[in-house]
């Protein structure tokens, strides 16, 4: 993985619709490049515009937070970046390849080899133990760490043989993080990872994410509606009503324990 990233480049809010994003980062450090991403859900009688032309770049080993109220389109954007969904219009590039041109098979391969997902509601398989939930991923990855190692990284070495129902919400989310990182993904995408948790457990989860980002250098993108979490990020991207409102770079990032919300 790459060298330590420092906050640079674009400062201040970005003008909307600006297609030429000026950046001092080298293109080969850029992991994602999204242009004009639009998503319209056809709900029968009404059409819902979840994304209305989003331009976004995410960089190697960067920790970004996508901030926005519910309905702002942040989950949709994350799903598209993660290859779970495809935009109605626009392009998304992942490193050299164009995600939006990939077929179902290509997207599956992309998710399998490059992406780690963490969901708001953990989405653990209830019939599998913590270790087995992680093994679900290590079974199909080319170069995984052991489930034990992954669980150890999130501080759950002593809970490996517990079923999800025997774990607290925070523990379940940490299992989900272990499951996401066990394949050594290039990007870690977290959808409201603390949304269903209280502060104390939320902090533990965020620490786990931060640790992965630091130790493995995994490009990390967390979406949340909790502005406080933005303080952990190198860049905070504000989404409102399907558009990027602003992108803020943090000079200093706070550790999860220093957050107050």
């Amino acid at each position: 993985m790459s060298q330590t990233t420092t906050a640079t480049a674009q400062s201040g809010p970005q003008p909307l619709g600006d297609r030429e994003v000026s950046t001092s980062r080298r293109d080969n450090e850029r992991v994602f490049r999204a242009r004009g991403v639009t998503k319209v859900y056809d709900m029968g009688e009404v059409q819902v515009h979840a994304l209305r032309g989003v331009d976004l770049d995410l960089y190697e080993s960067e920790f970004t937070v996508l901030l926005g109220p519910s309905g702002s389109g942040k989950s949709t954007l994350l799903n598209i970046l993660g290859g779970l969904d495809t935009p109605t219009d626009g392009e998304v590039h992942y490193r050299g390849g164009e995600l939006t041109a990939a077929d179902e098979r290509g997207l599956t391969r992309y998710r399998r080899h490059h992406v780690g997902f963490v969901f708001q509601f953990y989405n653990l398989i209830p019939s599998l133990t913590a270790k087995e939930n992680v093994a679900l991923v290590t079974d199909i990855s080319p170069d995984p760490m052991t489930p034990e190692h992954a669980l150890d990284m999130v501080g759950l070495a002593d809970r490996m043989d517990h079923f999800p129902a025997q774990l607290s919400g925070g523990q379940q989310q940490r299992v989900a993080i272990a499951r996401a990182i066990a394949k050594r993904p290039d990007v870690l995408l977290c959808d409201e990872p603390t949304g269903a948790l209280d502060i104390t457990t939320g902090v533990l989860v965020l620490e786990a994410i931060e640790r992965v980002n630091h130790e493995l250098g995994t490009t990390t993108c967390v979406i949340t509606h909790n502005a406080a979490i933005g303080q952990m990020a190198e860049r905070v991207i504000h989404l409102t009503d399907g558009r990027i409102g602003s992108i803020v770079e943090n000079e200093h990032q706070l550790g999860p324990r220093d957050l107050s919300w």
């Binding site: 993660g82 779970l84 179902e104 098979r105 599956t108 391969r109 998710r111 399998r112 080899h113 992406v115 997902f117 969901f119 509601f121 989405n123 653990l124 398989i125 209830p126 679900l136 991923v137 199909i140 990855s141 499951r179 394949k183």
Partner: peptide
């Protein structure tokens, strides 16, 4: 449904 989604998100193919 959600487990199916998680499996797919984790990289399990439609065939699997």
């Amino acid at each position: 449904r959600e487990q199916i989604a998680a499996l797919k998100a984790l990289g399990y193919s439609n065939r699997e």
